[in-house]
């Protein structure tokens, strides 16, 4: 069933573009070009994050945190980074796929977390900054709580349902 999702999206988008007489080929190229920009921006972040996460995880210091047994250790850096930087948590996600595989329990959990949360700090800084709002009231707390709820539900989901 879920195997159909990707082909169906592509199909719908292409057909809709056809009907609306959009130059679909040129538009596709134009969009794909934007990836250069993204990749160039992403690479330094990726390198920086992998350097620091590598040192942190390989040092095995995380064994000191063993008492929080229901959260897998390797996911902790991702939980810390997720609300702060999107590219960083994407880098950590890729690293988890590389190390444990995307279909492992850890890979699945990381996918859920990446998919159901967002970079709260970044969004607050960008959105409120752009219109000059200084008093953000309870925005940060609600935003972080929403992230925390998503992460908690993801962990519960992994442990009790799938």
């Amino acid at each position: 069933m879920s195997n159909y999702i990707m082909p169906l999206i592509v199909l719908c988008v292409i057909i809709y573009g056809f009907i609306k007489k959009v130059p679909i080929y040129d538009t596709f190229i134009e969009g794909a070009k934007e990836s250069f920009d993204m990749v160039f921006k992403l690479f330094p972040c990726l390198l920086a994050m992998i350097l620091s996460i590598n040192i942190f995880l390989k040092s095995n210091i995380i064994e000191l945190f063993q008492f929080i047994s229901f959260i897998p250790n390797q996911i902790i850096p991702m939980i810390i980074m997720r609300p702060i930087s999107g590219t960083s948590s994407l880098a950590i996600l890729t690293n988890i796929y590389e190390l444990f595989g995307p279909d492992s329990a850890l890979g699945t959990l990381a996918s859920y977390i990446q998919g159901t949360t967002d970079t709260t700090f970044y969004i607050i800084t960008l959105y409120f900054g752009s219109i000059g709002i200084k008093k953000i009231k309870y925005a940060l707390w609600v935003g972080l709580l929403a992230d925390l709820i998503s992460i908690t539900i993801s962990i519960l989901f992994i442990n009790f349902i799938s």
Partner: peptide, 25 residues
Amino acid sequence: SFDMIIKIFPVMALWLGIAKIAEVS
């Protein structure tokens, strides 16, 4: 990190292309 970026790049280009069509249309 180099291996990763090489893997991510083409996939990202693909989806950004599809997304652009969805946006423009």
